[in-house]
């Protein structure tokens, strides 16, 4: 039984091949402007890496912002559905799932089977999504992968006034001019994104355990801010950016 999950995100497209419930290969490519093409690229790469042919695949499920562009998929599944399923695969005790990607954020509550009970989504505003930290890293002139670890060096609390990413960029520049340390600013930035996600999570209700998935799950600065803000332990699977694709592949295996 071979199933594939393809997650066409706003920034990256991920494909995962599952054989009898085990991940045998995964791939990631930039989504770019042609999502159809990137979905195909990711699929081809994952198939190649698995050492199988497309004819061996029983079922393909697509998810993510560009899920409808995946013309080779048998069906689509919602991002919340796929995310929760994937999260529970890694942490069966997961009941609250936080999924933060490049351009969106989701908080959902699920049961022990990864079935969604309630959820909230933000895909309208960059504050509270990965692009917020990207913009702030640019304003701080710090590489994106360093902004998270940098935040951990600070224990100072600075509140950012701006909510909007565009305004926050100017605020970061003002803070730099005011000689605020980059570590303090970085912490303030992550506290700000986390605050947006926390208010969304509280709307659906936070229950133990909490699992964080999506690309922003790689950002230690965000994870600390989220955990401190909610006063809860944040569980993160290895390579959290693949969890939605894995969830889709798991659901695909049942559909066959």
């Amino acid at each position: 039984m071979i199933s594939v999950g393809v997650d066409v995100g706003n920034k990256f497209t991920k494909a995962v091949v599952l054989k009898d419930g085990q991940v045998i290969s995964k791939s990631i490519v930039l989504s770019g402007f042609d999502q159809k093409q990137s979905a195909n690229e990711a699929y081809d790469q994952a198939i190649k890496e698995a050492g199988i042919s497309k004819n061996d695949v029983n079922y393909v499920l697509a998810t993510g912002a560009g899920k409808k562009e995946v013309d080779f998929a048998n069906d689509v599944v919602s991002e919340v559905g796929a995310g929760a399923r994937g999260a529970v695969y890694f942490f069966p005790s997961g009941r609250t799932i936080i999924d933060v990607g490049a351009e969106d954020g989701r908080a959902s509550k699920c049961d022990q089977n990864g079935k969604i009970v309630d959820f909230a989504v933000n895909e309208k505003c960059a504050a509270g999504a990965g692009s917020f930290s990207e913009s702030m890293a640019r304003a701080l002139e710090v590489p994106l992968e360093e902004i998270g670890p940098l935040a951990l060096q600070s224990n100072n609390v600075i509140y950012m006034n701006a909510q909007c990413t565009v305004f926050a960029e100017s605020e970061v520049v003002s803070l730099i001019h005011a000689k605020t340390s980059k570590a303090d600013i970085s912490k303030a930035v992550h506290d700000a994104i986390a605050a947006r996600i926390i208010s969304m999570a509280r709307r659906v209700g936070v229950e133990k355990d909490l699992v964080m998935i999506g690309g922003v799950g790689n950002n230690v600065g965000f994870l600390k801010a989220l955990g401190d803000g909610l006063e809860i332990e944040v569980l993160v699977p290895d390579k959290p950016e693949y969890v939605c694709a894995i969830g889709a592949a798991l659901i695909a295996a049942e559909r066959n």
Binding site: F33, E103, K124, C125, A126, S131, S135, T165, V166
Partner: peptide, 18 residues
């Protein structure tokens, strides 16, 4: 179609590419 300026920028880049 994007409300957020950050996303609208990405959308506009896509339109230019088209």
């Amino acid at each position: 179609s994007s409300t957020c300026v950050v996303f609208a920028k990405t959308e506009a880049t896509g339109l230019l590419r088209d």
